[in-house]
């Protein structure tokens, strides 16, 4: 479930976006899968950083890195990438 601070609008846009990608890559499930993995890895690293409070000198995957990974995954799908950028804090 979403964090309480997440508004329903943000949650709904995220659901629609994930569905859009899923449908766009119906013939290439490995691309959709890779997209999920990128987000999953990002989230996992963020949690690890939080737990270690940066003691290991790592800041985890940055949002810039997430964006470039997704950009190389969504080559030729500029609309998806532009929409993805709208979720990123520094886009």
């Amino acid at each position: 479930p979403p964090a309480p601070e997440t508004s329903p609008v943000e949650f709904d846009s995220a659901i629609s976006y994930v569905n859009k990608i899923k449908n766009r890559f119906l013939d290439h499930p490995e691309i959709y899968r890779a997209f999920l993995e990128i987000l999953h890895t990002y989230q996992k690293e963020q949690l690890e950083v939080k737990e270690s409070r940066g003691n290991r000198g790592s800041s985890g995957m940055t949002e810039d890195e997430v964006f470039s990974k997704v950009a190389s995954l969504f080559k030729g799908q500029e609309d998806l990438l532009a929409e993805f950028g709208q979720f990123l804090p520094d886009a």
Binding site: P2, A3, E5, T6, S7, E10, F11, S13, A14, I15, Y17, V18, N19, K22, F35, L36, L39, H40, Y42, Q43, E63, Q86, F87, L88, P89, D90, A91
Partner: peptide
């Protein structure tokens, strides 16, 4: 209705958290 796997839901969660931080940083 959506047929989401746990990994799908996790992606939705990550994206909405990013959007929330974006909103927070803009206000």
């Amino acid at each position: 209705s959506y047929d989401f796997t746990p990994l799908d839901s996790s992606a939705v969660y990550v994206l909405s958290s990013m959007a929330r931080r974006r909103r927070a940083s803009q206000s």
